[in-house]
Nucleic acid binder design. Structure first.
Lengths: 220, 220
DNA sequence: TATGAAAGTTAGACTAACCTAACAAATATA
DNA sequence: TATATTTGTTAGGTTAGTCTAACTTTCATA
């Protein structure tokens, strides 16, 4: 049985490994920063996780999840994303409100609960942010990797997922009526600053920044 | 903000106060036994709760919830019973499985979550065990107080709530096809041992023990 | 009403998760 | 390559919640 905190370390490591596929290992400071604790605290916990064979860890070395650690981490991510979906779909939470509550709900211990919840939601493949929901067996559905910023003028695409899940960005998306599945047409690409002119569904074209275009995954 | 443990102490005290309306106060040992900790541990925590003005506590004295403590306790009970209802109604959990998971879910912090959940469930007044679900304002719906054992031969009633929520009893009820709302007719009362012969809906009459009859609340 | 049992408290210790301050290793760069 | 910066570790301390063992108060009853 893993503690609340141990689970958070595993999830953090998993998320960090997703952020950079080529380099799935993380450093102590990186972990600490991600979790909002001091590096000394992370060092202690990493030793403990190593004892439990959840991570590979050597003094001054990089940290990597073991098979067991990965399995556990994925299980937590699965719960997190299923709960996010529940909050969004069934309880009418907005895009930017689901994360905080799901952070708590993901630690509820009950195998039956997760599986029943998944069934209740109709076995969704993606959460409200477009992130893939791991299956009970640990499989993770394939996901779009194309950024809106990679699109060329004239191309049409659909919003597949958000890369940046900060409240500010999510609220901005809501204001623009952009959600998962929204159709976007790239009207013009401004070479000068990487900004784009896009058409959201059938609305008037509007300009968005490069930062914005690099924060949305799309599917053409 | 209350800790997980503090919340459990408040809920325990509230439940103990319901068990005996005339005597809403509890003792240290009683609390400790209920929570599965040692009396010394309870003493420590009670001092802490007193500092926070959640209970009235004096050395060697009885313990009582303050207004604030009661309000907090009721809020937790509300969450517990709403989650139980969710698990039973929406996720197909059985009568005896809901409690354990709800014990965890009741500690999730989000005012919005509770209220949205209540709305999603259609503002239920009673949980799967027939216990009243406190409203957002702290009001607790009135509840049946008549025990099946108080019924006389010939009387008909409906099951309103279970007094004993032990797994063994709940599973036995399921086996007998008794649930909240089931109609029971008392055929005969055996003076010798307090056992009853009852008819469950339209099934053949069967005999139940006094212990059984004292564990079910009914409404005539 | 004196006294032994029951109920409750205190003192001291442990663990998990955190911290700060000081130090050590690794890495980047002048 | 020597050194400064970054990264990571160690040592020692804190808090919440728990424990055991010894002690004190209260209460029931002989």
């Amino acid at each position: 049985m893993l503690s609340y905190t141990e689970e958070n370390y595993l999830k953090a490591l998993l998320k960090l490994s997703f952020q950079n596929e080529e380099r799935p290992e993380a450093g102590t400071n990186e972990m600490a920063a991600y979790l909002g604790v001091k590096p000394a605290t992370a060092t202690d916990m990493l030793k403990k996780l190593k004892e439990k064979d959840l991570v590979t860890y050597k003094k001054y070395g990089k940290i990597l999840l073991t098979e067991s650690g990965k399995k556990n981490g994925i299980a937590i991510l699965r719960k997190h994303r299923l709960w996010e979906t529940f909050l969004y779909e069934k309880l009418d939470f907005s895009w930017d409100e689901v994360h905080e509550v799901a952070e708590q709900l993901e630690h509820i211990q009950s195998a039956k609960l997760v599986d029943k919840l998944e069934e209740f939601l109709g076995f969704p493949e993606f959460d409200p942010h477009g992130d893939p929901i791991p299956k009970a067996n640990g499989e993770i559905p394939a996901t779009a990797k194309t950024l809106l910023s990679e699109m060329k003028a004239g191309q049409t695409c659909k919003v597949a997922a958000v890369k940046d899940t900060s409240t500010l960005f999510l609220q901005y998306l809501e204001k623009l009526h952009i959600t998962i599945g929204t159709t976007l047409k790239v009207i013009e690409v401004i070479a000068f600053d990487g900004s784009l002119s896009i058409q959201i569904e059938n609305e008037e074209p509007r300009s968005i920044s490069m930062k914005f275009a690099e924060s949305l995954f799309v599917q053409s």
